[in-house]
Design a protein around this nucleic acid. Structure first.
Length: 353
DNA sequence: AAGTTCTTATTAC
DNA sequence: CTAACGGTAATAAGAACTT
């Protein structure tokens, strides 16, 4: 197994930072990019908040109604996705030049495999120093060309690089060499490990496990028993082990759309009109991606958050709009008949190939 | 019994 | 005043079903 050097970078408070750049008079004020708060009654969530807004306790993914309560005087901005997409493209074009092995994770985050630096067969400290220089150069180029700051993490694999980024935010750069991995991870909260979310963390915390060093004390067998396949990954992650390659392209397995109604409803007129829009939009994506549809999943969420799905796999893959539409509407109708609760959300997903 | 398919849970961004 | 909550996508587990 060859040694690697992996760089991860993540734009700091990306959407909000772009808004600051576009409107310099926002600087220094709390900015929340996300759904319309509608005076505290909005149904959406926060996409990104700048650091001034975070001082009030506002975070990504938080209900916008809660964000509004925490800081009603913040500047609430809608998501201008086309703009962020354009900025993202420019940044990714810059980053790609630093390594042919480049893997984009989202609009604001990507990995670079810098293992080619090892072709310099000098002492390993020098090679890691070169990786750091490269990271500094990347940060500098992004800032000079786009006036945006980011954080860079460098490590022997994707896992360590990403955690390093998160620890160094904002506007940081952190290099974790293989010798430092163990002591770097030891004091960190288990939720720093990608894949350990709130539910998993709660189960581990009930055993008194809060830090990665405590997680290391659990055997592979115990973790496997508790969490199945991912448990084995937690075992390795706690030791800083990760073999995931930096992937250039990902295979799309499904495409879909879902919407939450402004108000919960049982009115079939409203529901089926919205569903038709969804079907058309999803079908458009099928066309654009030149995919075949292998099956469908229809989902619904009732007013009380109870969520259900119905899915079917077709005998033969298809691009037949009428067929897909008929099958999808059949499922939605079943949901309406099965319960008289008002609907909060409906959605359609196509399994593709 | 084995192989698919369906449904839900969890996570990440 | 408990329980606040988007949209898109992947993965895994276990149940339910076919063959």
């Amino acid at each position: 197994m060859k040694k690697r050097i992996i760089l991860h970078f993540d734009m700091d408070y990306f959407f909000a930072q772009i808004e600051e750049r576009e409107n310099p008079h926002f600087k220094g004020k709390p900015i929340v990019v996300g759904a319309d708060p509608k005076g505290g009654r909005g149904r959406g969530v926060v996409s990104t908040a700048n650091y001034e807004a975070r001082k009030f306790g506002i975070k990504s993914g938080m209900p916008i109604s809660k964000a509004f309560k925490l800081c009603p005087k913040a500047i609430f901005l809608p998501v201008n996705m086309e703009l962020y997409q354009k900025v993202s493209e420019k940044i990714m074009e810059i980053a790609k030049k630093y390594s042919p092995i480049f893997g984009q994770i989202s609009l604001d985050e990507a990995y670079l495999d810098l293992s080619f630096l090892f072709h310099d067969r000098r002492k390993k400290e020098i090679v890691w120093e070169k990786a750091k220089k490269l990271g500094e150069k990347l940060k500098k180029e992004i800032f000079e060309k786009e006036r945006l700051i980011c954080t860079v993490g460098i490590g022997p694999n994707k896992l360590v690089a990403k955690i390093a980024t998160n620890q160094a935010k904002p506007n940081g750069l952190l290099v974790i060499t293989p010798q430092k991995v163990k002591s770097f991870l030891a004091p960190l909260d288990i939720e720093e490990i990608p894949g350990i979310g709130p539910k998993t963390a709660k189960r581990l915390k009930s055993l008194g496990i809060r830090t990665i060093s405590q997680l290391r004390k659990l055997s592979k067998e115990k973790l496997k028993k508790m969490f199945g396949k991912v448990g084995e990954r937690f075992f390795e992650a706690a030791r800083g082990i990760d073999r995931e390659p930096v992937l250039v392209k990902e295979i799309v397995k499904s495409v879909g759309k879902q919407i939450t109604f402004e108000k919960d409803t049982r009115d079939p007129k409203i529901i089926f009109a919205e569903f038709e829009k969804i079907i058309k939009a999803v079908f458009q994506e099928l066309k654009e991606g030149n995919f075949y549809c292998k099956g469908i999943v229809v989902l619904c969420r009732y007013f009380d958050f109870e969520t259900h799905s119905k899915s079917k796999t077709f005998k033969k893959k298809t691009k037949n709009f009428k067929l897909i539409k008929r099958e999808a509407e059949k499922f939605l109708l079943k949901f309406l008949l099965k319960s008289k609760k008002p609907l909060r959300l409906i959605g359609l997903r196509l399994k593709v190939s």
